[in-house]
Every structure is written in C-alpha cells, then in structure tokens.
Computed example of a mutant assay.
Amino acid sequence: MFKSVAVTVVAFLLLPGVWRQTAVLIGMAAGTGIAAVTGLAPPWPRSPARQSSTARPWGAPRARAATSPRAPC
C-alpha cells in the first residue's frame, strides 16, 4: 500500500498542470501492477460481476398456460 501512495505523491509532484489530476489513476495502476508482480493479487477478481453463470439443476424457466384468471385482491 505504501508503494502505491508513494507513486501517487511522486506523480503529483512531477507532473505539470492538468496532468496532476491523473496522479491518483497512476498510483492505482502502479499499486495493481506491483501487487500482480509480487503475487499479492489474485489472477482474476472474485466479484459477483466477473463470475460466470452456472446452470441451475431445475433447468430453464417455462411459461405456464393460463388456466383461469385470478380474482383481484
């Protein structure tokens, strides 16, 4: 964590003008790269958004035929 903060501070101090706004992005990218190289990051994220879908044992949903309309409550 300290290395990414150090990279962020150095980028902020060395970049001119508007480019200073990218210092946080550079620090995040450097921290991710350092974690990947040192083996501290998993090879893929384990978030629900990145997981592949699995087949359900009960199959795909099917439409039911309407037998009788239900009375409104």
Rank of each mutant, 00 (worst) to 15 (best):
V24M: 04
A49H: 05
P48I: 14
T32P: 00
G17Y: 09
V18Y: 05
V9R: 09
P48S: 07
M1W: 13
R46F: 13
A29Y: 03
V9A: 15
W19E: 00
T32C: 06
A63W: 14
V24A: 02
G59P: 03
S68H: 11
A49V: 02
W58G: 03
T67Y: 07
A11I: 00
S53V: 15
V9L: 15
P48K: 14
R46Q: 15
W58I: 07
R70E: 10
T22L: 15
W58S: 07
A55Y: 01
V24K: 01
C73P: 01
V10L: 04
T22R: 00
T8R: 03
P16G: 03
F12M: 01
T38E: 12
F12D: 00
A63K: 09
G59Y: 09
T32R: 08
M1A: 09
I34H: 04
A55S: 06
P72C: 15
R56Y: 02
T38D: 11
P72N: 06
V5G: 07
T54E: 04
V5C: 14
A60V: 14
I26P: 00
A63C: 09
A30I: 09
T32F: 07
Q51L: 13
G33K: 01
W44H: 02
P48L: 12
P48G: 04
F2K: 12
W44D: 05
L25H: 08
P72W: 06
R20C: 08
R62F: 11
V9S: 03
P43I: 12
P61L: 13
S47Q: 06
T22H: 02
A49Y: 01
A23W: 02
G33I: 03
P69N: 08
A30T: 08
P61G: 04
G31Y: 00
G27I: 07
A71D: 06
I26Q: 02
L25V: 12
A30Q: 05
A60T: 01
L13N: 06
R50A: 07
R64N: 12
F12H: 05
R64C: 11
R56N: 06
L25W: 13
A41S: 14
V37F: 06
S53H: 14
C73V: 15
G27R: 04
V18D: 03
V5W: 10
A23L: 10
F12E: 00
A66E: 06
K3L: 12
T54W: 12
P16M: 06
A30M: 05
I34A: 08
T67V: 14
K3H: 08
G27N: 01
A11K: 02
Q21W: 13
G31K: 04
I34S: 10
M1G: 10
P43Y: 13
L13Q: 00
Q21I: 11
A63P: 10
P48R: 05
P45F: 09
F2P: 05
L14Q: 08
P57W: 11
L25M: 10
S52W: 10
A23S: 04
A66L: 13
Q21G: 14
S53L: 13
A36P: 08
V5L: 15
G39P: 01
Q21P: 01
W44R: 12
R62N: 00
A30H: 08
F2S: 13
S52T: 10
S4M: 11
